[in-house]
Simulated assay, not measured.
Amino acid sequence: MTQHWFRLYVQRIDTTRNMARFYAMSIEPDLFGGSALIRRWGRIGTRGQERIDLFKDDAEAAEAIGRFLFLARQKRARGYRPQAHT
Rank of each mutant, 00 (worst) to 15 (best):
V10K: 05
L8T: 08
D14A: 15
T46D: 13
Y80Q: 03
A62E: 05
E28S: 10
R47E: 02
Y9M: 00
M25L: 11
L37W: 01
Q83P: 00
G45W: 09
R7A: 07
Y23C: 04
Y9H: 12
Y23F: 14
I44Y: 06
T46G: 12
A20P: 08
D57C: 03
A24F: 04
G42E: 10
P82Q: 04
F6L: 11
R40D: 15
S26H: 00
K56R: 10
A64H: 08
I44K: 15
T16H: 06
Q49W: 02
E50G: 00
L69D: 15
R51L: 10
E28H: 11
N18F: 11
I65K: 03
A36K: 15
N18Y: 01
R76H: 13
T86D: 06
E28A: 12
A36H: 02
F22A: 04
H4E: 03
A62P: 04
D30Q: 06
L71V: 13
I38C: 06
D30M: 00
E28P: 12
D53N: 05
W41G: 02
G45S: 14
T46Q: 14
P29Y: 05
T2Q: 14
R47H: 07
E50I: 00
G34Y: 14
T46S: 13
K56A: 15
L54H: 14
G42K: 10
A61V: 04
